[in-house]
């Protein structure tokens, strides 16, 4: 890839930063070149995010429908599984899974809920809520 072939596709997701790609210059050296994006990379990443967002909306619907607790939403929004969340909090996976049930989560003490809220760095209030399905 020559320096002038390095893609500059202005990927918005880069948020103003750029990635370094290596390419050959006119003198035959391979140098670092700043790239603002590559549509191919953007598409692949986009694929992954589409899937994540679809699944998240699905979970959100289940929360709104009383099938899952708000914890399920916040956990998934942080790209975590019950196993990962449990490991990070130093608690058992079955505990987290149990807390995904709406009634059980509701009856948890504030102290316990706070442990989750603290990890997600949100307020207790925010932990209990989920965004409206029609945000965006």
């Amino acid at each position: 890839m020559k320096v002038d072939q390095v893609p500059q596709d202005l990927d918005q997701g880069y948020e103003g930063i750029y990635k370094i790609r290596y390419a050959r210059d006119k003198d035959g050296n391979i140098i670092k070149v700043k790239s603002t994006g590559w549509s191919v990379e953007e598409a692949a990443t986009g694929c992954a995010w589409e899937d994540i967002n679809e699944s998240l909306i699905d979970t959100l619907k289940k929360v709104k429908g009383g099938k899952l607790s708000p914890l399920a939403y916040h956990m998934e929004e942080a790209l975590l599984t019950p196993q990962l969340l449990a490991q990070n909090l130093g608690i058992w996976t079955w505990t987290v899974k149990r807390h995904l049930k709406p009634q059980i989560f509701k009856n948890l003490s504030d102290k316990k809920k706070q442990i989750y809220a603290d990890y997600f760095e949100i307020s207790l209030n925010d932990l209990l809520q989920t965004p409206s399905l029609y945000d965006e």
């Binding site: 449990a86 608690i91 058992w92 079955w94 149990r98 807390h99 316990k112 442990i115």
Partner: peptide, 16 residues
């Protein structure tokens, strides 16, 4: 002590 279907219904947050 800990687990589903126990008298105390304690979970691992309680274990802490």
């Amino acid at each position: 002590i800990f687990g589903d279907n126990t008298a105390l219904e304690l979970d691992s947050l309680d274990a802490l």
